[in-house]
Each structure stands twice: as C-alpha cells, then as structure tokens.
C-alpha cells in the first residue's frame, strides 16, 4: 500500500446468492452464487482519478457500490483513509457518507421528479445536519450551481427535473455529489445516457471539479477511450476479475491482456476509413453464476492456449505498477 491511498481494497469479493425456485429448493442443497466481484485488489490514491473499464456484467458497478459500502463485501478488506469500512457501525456511517458520494448513470432516474433543483441540493445539507442557516444554505447552493455552470442559478432553483435538458440534469446530479465537500466520488457511467455532443462538457466539468475540490475519483465506464480521457490509472475488469491494471497511458499504448486489446479495438471513432468492426470479439460475456474454468476470458480469447482452460492466471506486476493476469505474460 502506498502512503496516500484513500481507498484500498484487498481481496475484495462480493457473491450474491440466487433465490431458488420451490422445486429446486426441495431437491438441491447447493447454493447458486453470482460471483459479481471475485477477489480483486486495488487502491485509489489522493487526488487521483482511477478508472474501471469493462463490459456490462464485469462487476464494475458492484465494485463501485462496494467501495461506498452500499453493498457489504462477502470477503476481503476495504479501507477508507486507513479505517476498515467493514468495522464501521451503521450509526457511524452517516458522517462517513458525507465524505463519499456518487453520481449515477441515468440523470433521468436519479433525480426525484417531485423535487425542485433547490430541494435536491438542499437535501444532503439537511440530512447531514450541517447546521447552516437558511441564508448560508442558499449561498452554498447558488455557488455550487455556478460551479457546475448552471447559470444564472436563480433561474433554475425552482425548476423541476423535467424542465431541464439531459445535460443540465447531470450537472445537477454532479452538484449534489460535490455540495458536501466530499473526499471521494464514484461516477458510474455518468455520460452514457447523454448525447455525444454534450458528453465532453460534462466530463471536462468533472475533471475541473476534481481539481478544484481536491477529491479522489472513481470513474466507471465501458468505453476505454473515455476512461483514458479521464483517468490517471485504470483497471480493466472481466467477469468479476481485474485482468489488467496500471497507468492509463501504458494500458492504452501497451496493452498486455487480449481483453484490453479488444476494448481498444472497439472504441468508436468518427472515421469511415477505420472500421472497428473488422476484428471484433465474438460472443458475449459468460454468466457469472458458473464462470468458465481457468482463465475466465478463455472462451472468447483470440490467443487462447491449453493452460488457459485449466489454470487461472495470477495477477502479476510486469513493470512499474503495470499488472496483468494472463498466461502469456509471466
């Protein structure tokens, strides 16, 4: 562990138990488990933007929820600034929540349609009982709206979410996350529901705020080009495992894992001469209930070897903080 880790996950694991049908419960005692996150270790450092990339079902959202303790881990250790998150009692969680915030994927669903922008931003302040006077609170909300470029604030305070565009909604969601001066923020696919033309603005805004408010940031995405734009370091996940991790530029320019390669090849580009569909990976991500034996990627891997079917590759450091879990790199 490095000195300045804000979040540290060691052997973090989350298995969800599947509910069984009636007949099945009579005849079988075996529990079916969804191995959403399966033994991953990483750290997020101070003022760092850390990325998690992978397809749907790779466990990146569950990881994001685990580090905020919105889910209880099945196994493994998780610390926030040196404190063991699992040992914090429910009562003590509230002051901690103030330090950790989240921006959800869909701004059409994450804002309460019955609350005005003013209410939405005032709620976290009230819930945390920060003892602001009404005037202080108003001042804080106004400043925050200006910071996310919803200007002039007075024009927007009394609007409801349906009176805002998608981009404006996501700005309000970002403002809500930053208003409590948190130290750590998770953003789960914050732009995937937005038009391409406004994605850039929201991402740039978040980068500016990260710098201004000195927060650590976990950015979750399926688009490795966006991850590269945002992140200092990143991890690529596949079926509950981290398959590659390291500084962003190294991952993008010297990818070691074939899955990272596939994600890079699938990056959308507005260039009709560069077709990305030529060598696209076949098939879909397998079920996390019975993940493939050995290396979990072997069923789709273009460079699969015999050993990949049998033995699970360990994650090893290749050079300077660049980790990979692949039998071709040892």
């Amino acid at each position: 562990m490095t000195e300045n880790a804000v979040i540290e996950a060691v052997h973090l694991t989350k298995h969800f138990q599947l509910s069984k049908g009636f007949t099945e419960s009579l005849f079988s005692r075996r529990k079916s488990l969804v191995r959403a996150v399966d033994d991953i270790s990483f750290e997020i450092r101070e003022k760092e933007v850390f990325g998690l990339a992978g397809e749907s079902g790779s466990g990146k959202t569950t990881t994001g929820r685990l580090v905020l303790r919105l889910e209880e881990p099945t196994r493994g250790k998780l610390t926030f600034k040196g404190r063991d998150l699992a040992k914090i009692k429910a009562k003590e969680l509230k002051p901690l929540r103030r330090k950790m915030q989240i921006v959800f994927q869909d701004p059409y669903e994450s804002l309460n349609p019955r609350m005005t922008v003013d209410d939405i931003l005032a709620e976290p302040l009230t819930v945390q009982r920060l003892d602001h006077s009404k005037a202080e609170m108003n001042e804080k909300i106004r400043k925050m709206l200006e910071a996310v470029e919803i200007t002039p604030p007075d024009e927007f305070l009394l609007r409801y979410p349906h009176e805002l565009s998608g981009g404006q909604r996501q700005r309000v969601a970002v403002a809500r996350a930053f208003i409590l001066d948190p130290e750590f923020i998770v953003a789960d696919e914050p732009v995937s529901m937005l038009d391409v033309s406004i994605r850039a603005e929201i991402l740039n805004l978040m980068l500016d705020l990260v710098e201004k408010f000195n927060v650590s940031f976990l950015y979750i995405t399926h688009d490795i080009a966006l991850a590269r734009h945002m992140c200092d370091r990143m991890a690529v996940m596949y079926l509950g495992k981290i398959v590659e991790m390291g500084p962003t530029e190294e991952i993008v320019y010297e990818p070691l894992h074939p899955y990272t390669n596939a994600l890079i090849d699938a990056v959308p580009t507005p260039d009709p001469t560069a077709k990305r569909t030529k060598g696209v990976l076949q098939g879909e991500i397998p079920s996390p209930i019975n993940p493939p034996s050995g290396c979990r990627f072997h069923t789709r891997c273009p460079v699969v070897m015999d050993i990949c079917h049998k033995e699970e590759p360990a994650i090893v450091e290749i050079e300077g903080e660049h980790f990979v879990a692949c039998h071709r790199h040892k």
Binding site: E55, M193, I224, D265, V280
Partner: peptide, 12 residues
C-alpha cells in the same frame, strides 16, 4: 445503450 464490444458486433 449497448456496450462498445456488443455495439461493434451489432454494427458488423
């Protein structure tokens, strides 16, 4: 609304 890899498969 599809992942990049699945999107590429559909476009193909």
């Amino acid at each position: 609304a599809l992942d990049v890899i699945v999107q590429a498969q559909v476009l193909k």
